[in-house]
């Protein structure tokens, strides 16, 4: 008797649980639609002719996709050229950010000197400084040094502004690992730099992943510095192509949509391939922070 009651209970519980689960899935789906539907709309409208945009339908499945928009995006939008620049700037910046932040964190955390904490805090201060407050001065400085309109005009500030966060993550991680291994390596007469690259780097791998991902996302998508410091197309990065193109084809929206879709494409692909690492890396960094 008692058993059947609890059985009934558990059956009802199971059904309830199932319904609950479906509700959960439904809710998540609604949210997902909210998150990515504008993107789908964007891609949809990028395949239309300029005059097909108007009308009551908010999704128009094009019978003849207007690929011309994408041709314009590739040629006049200069997406490939900007993509190359983006890759160069991002790879160099992120590499420098990783190397410099590892070196600095090691210098602050493991080396013994009086002002190490003071300097660490000065670097961490950079966290709070808004990029935009430095746009005016840096523009003039770069012009004086004649490095405005070169890759350096982007790489230098990108590295500088990502260092505080990277150093924060690295040094935070370093705090959690004991330095016994390093001690013994040093005892054996290993130099600091060899130690850094053979022993410390592998240990820091999770932190490095986090730094690479956050820095890469920051650098790859950065716009206002790229728009302010650079003058010629030669060094411009991907986010600028959208901006530039919207001037060239200011009244051809579907072509603009094509450029937007196209310039979002590389990071989307990278994300789809690496999404596990990316979400893990971001989460690790954030929870640490």
């Amino acid at each position: 008797m008692a058993e059947t009651v609890s059985n009934k209970h558990s059956i009802r519980g199971k059904i309830k649980k199932k319904i609950f689960r479906y509700i959960q899935i439904l809710l998540c789906s609604v949210l997902t639609v909210g998150c990515i539907f504008p993107l789908i709309w964007l891609i949809n409208f990028s395949l239309l002719k300029a005059n097909e945009l108007f009308g009551p339908k908010f999704l128009v499945w094009p019978k003849n996709p207007h690929w011309e928009n994408y041709r314009l995006a590739l040629t006049d939008g200069k997406v490939p050229q900007y993509l190359v620049n983006s890759v160069i700037v991002a790879v160099v910046s992120v590499s420098l950010i990783v190397i410099l932040s590892v070196m600095m964190s090691y210098g602050f955390k493991r080396m013994r000197w009086r002002l190490s904490n003071v300097f660490l805090n000065i670097v961490l201060l950079g966290f709070m400084i808004p990029i935009h407050a430095t746009l005016l001065s840096n523009f003039i400085t770069f012009a004086d040094l004649k490095i405005q309109d070169s890759y350096f005009a982007l790489i230098i500030p990108y590295v500088a502004f990502n260092l505080p966060q990277a150093t924060f993550i690295m040094s935070g991680f370093m705090d959690t690992i004991p330095d016994a291994v390093e001690e013994s390596a040093l005892m054996d007469g290993c130099s600091i730099f060899r130690l850094l690259f053979t022993i410390v780097l592998p240990i820091l791998k999770p932190a490095i992943m986090t730094v690479i991902i956050t820095a890469f996302l920051n650098v790859w998508n950065e716009f206002i510095m790229a728009a302010t410091y650079l003058t010629s197309d030669r060094y411009r990065t991907l986010p600028f192509s959208v901006y530039n193109f919207s001037g060239m084809y200011s009244s051809n929206y579907s072509a603009q949509f094509a450029v937007m879709a196209l310039s979002a494409f590389p990071s989307l692909i990278a994300y789809v391939i690496l999404n596990k690492h990316i979400t893990k890396g971001i989460a690790a960094g954030a929870v640490k922070g």
């Binding site: 949210l31 997902t32 998150c35 990515i36 504008p38 993107l39 964007l42 996302l217 790859w220 998508n221 716009f223 991907l238 986010p239 600028f240 959208v242 901006y243 919207s246 603009q256 937007m260 310039s263 979002a264 990071s267 989307l268 990278a270 994300y271 999404n275 990316i278 979400t279 971001i282």
Partner: peptide
């Protein structure tokens, strides 16, 4: 849910 974060702010703003 993370997709909007990997797309450049220029694209999303203009979108």
């Amino acid at each position: 849910l993370f997709i909007p974060c990997v797309i450049s702010i220029v694209v999303t703003s203009k979108m």
